[in-house]
């Protein structure tokens, strides 16, 4: 267990709901769930969830810190917003799921083989370097996420799609060299750094 994780676990001992309210985006809305389960039934990824959103909300209230944060459930969310549209209590379920995922990541509690988590990291790395998504590089790094051999196979399988994208200018080959960027890259980096600091400070402070 990381120090930060341990510190937070100690700090909020017996009151995981409070930890979620303090540290997770829209975490205060968790308490509004009335366990109807419409989110669970509405999710297109439903069958792949270990715990449904409604169950996760219940687990939070039942103090199941480890089980929630180490779960891969919230990584299943594809942001389709079906659950938010149908939730009778208007809970921002998608946001809460991402919030929980982010928090788990911060505490290094993400399951090692979680592919969505891996992709999310790749996406973030790609985006944060220049402030723009470099689709070519993102595609390549995604293909090769699980090793060279598999990457080549995936690339071959998608060859035709790639060529068509190039043809229709949906993807630019010159992106491979540098690629496009925001105007004020250093300003962008400074902004991200500041945001990270604020977030860190909040959690650090909450852990004391």
């Amino acid at each position: 267990m990381s120090d930060l994780n341990q510190a937070l676990a100690d700090k909020y001992k017996g009151n995981f709901l409070k930890e979620v309210i303090d540290n997770v985006e829209e975490g205060d809305r968790v308490q509004m769930c009335m366990q109807c389960g419409v989110c669970a039934g509405s999710c297109p990824m439903g069958p792949h969830w270990e715990h449904t959103p409604q169950k996760i909300f219940m687990m939070i209230r039942a103090n199941k810190r480890e089980a929630v944060l180490a779960s891969d459930s919230m990584w299943m969310c594809t942001s389709c917003y079906n659950c938010i549209a149908r939730c009778p209590r208007e809970l921002p379920i998608t946001h809460i799921m991402h919030g929980l995922a982010t928090y788990a990541k911060r505490l290094n509690l993400v399951p090692k083989t979680q592919p969505t988590a891996k992709f999310a990291q790749l996406f973030w790395n790609n985006l944060s370097s220049k402030g723009r998504v470099n689709e070519l590089k993102l595609g390549i790094s995604l293909y090769f996420m699980n090793g060279f051999g598999e990457g080549v196979k995936t690339a071959m399988a998608n060859q035709k799609l790639g060529l068509n994208m190039l043809k229709t200018k949906r993807m630019a080959i010159n992106e491979a060299w540098g690629g496009h960027s925001v105007k004020d890259k250093s300003g962008f980096h400074a902004m991200l750094k500041k945001a990270a600091e604020i977030e860190n400070d909040t959690i650090e402070a909450n852990s004391k």
Binding site: L17, Q31, M32, C33, M34, Q35, M58, R61, A62, R89
Partner: peptide
């Protein structure tokens, strides 16, 4: 709803 909003836990 108000009870939930005030943080009352229902199980």
């Amino acid at each position: 709803r108000s009870g939930q909003n005030k943080g009352v836990t229902f199980r």
